[in-house]
């Protein structure tokens, strides 16, 4: 299955791109996407530990099972206001 990943702020700078598509095994969870991303973009390694996961624009635990076509967001600590 394929998922779309969107990068923001520090994670976008580290990945060098706004988004990426990942091909994952059926039954993959957020943590599997995380591992695949770090392997592909090693500069994410030091930053992704403090990031939250969003799936289809809502915060979800990293253990969340993913579905084909999901939009994942890598949300570094926010700093609005």
């Amino acid at each position: 299955m394929d998922v779309r990943v969107r990068f923001f702020a520090t994670l976008r700078d580290a990945a060098g791109r706004d988004e990426s598509w990942l091909a994952l095994e059926p039954g993959a969870r957020g943590v599997d996407a995380k591992a695949t991303l770090v392997a592909r973009h090693p500069r994410l390694a030091g930053l992704i530990g403090s990031a939250r996961l969003s799936v289809n624009q809502a915060y979800q635990p990293w253990e969340t099972p993913l579905r084909d076509g999901d939009e994942l967001g890598l949300i570094p600590p926010v700093s609005g206001g």
Partner: peptide, 14 residues
């Protein structure tokens, strides 16, 4: 509201 915005809403400042 300002607390929730600062903690949860995906906005980042540089």
């Amino acid at each position: 509201l300002i607390e929730r915005i600062k903690q949860d809403v995906p906005i980042w400042k540089r």
